[in-house]
Computed example of a mutant assay.
Amino acid sequence: MCRVPTRRTPRPAWVVDECRALGHRIASVRVAAQMSQDDLAERAGVERRSIQRYESGRRDPRYADLLLIAYALDVQVEDLVRPEPRPASTGDGGRPGR
């Protein structure tokens, strides 16, 4: 049986937040395009369960899947991964480079 190694340290909160935000952006664009998760999965060539996991933030899409999803939604990858601007007063949650 193949075991997946566990992380040595948990992900920082800002990474978890960005992963969830990515999922919400994928879902938002999909809904705006009037597609179901099944439609998107079929057009992108990925499993519906993967789309569900990406949108809920339970799993990060692989880069290749992200490319396929963006193509299926007729958007640029940047439109999906670009973080929302944050007001300076709320802080960055420890995010480097901001």
Rank of each mutant, 00 (worst) to 15 (best):
L68H: 13
R11V: 05
R20G: 03
R86E: 11
L73W: 02
G45M: 02
V16D: 09
R3A: 09
H24L: 11
A72I: 03
V75C: 08
T90A: 15
R82I: 01
R20H: 08
S89Q: 12
R53T: 02
V29Q: 10
G45F: 02
D17E: 11
P96Y: 06
R30W: 10
R82W: 04
R20F: 06
A70R: 08
P12T: 05
P83F: 06
L67A: 14
T90Q: 15
D38C: 07
Q34V: 12
G97M: 08
M35V: 04
R11W: 09
S50K: 11
L40F: 06
E42Y: 08
P83D: 09
T9D: 09
L80Y: 01
P10R: 03
P83H: 08
R43V: 00
Y54V: 03
A21C: 00
G23A: 09
A64M: 14
A41C: 07
R49S: 12
D17W: 06
R59W: 01
L40C: 11
V77P: 03
P5M: 10
P96W: 05
S28I: 03
A64Y: 09
E55R: 05
S36T: 08
R48H: 15
R30M: 05
L67G: 13
V77T: 00
C19M: 10
S50F: 06
Q37E: 14
R48Q: 15
W14V: 02
S56Y: 01
R95G: 02
R58G: 09
V46K: 02
G45D: 04
L80K: 03
R49G: 10
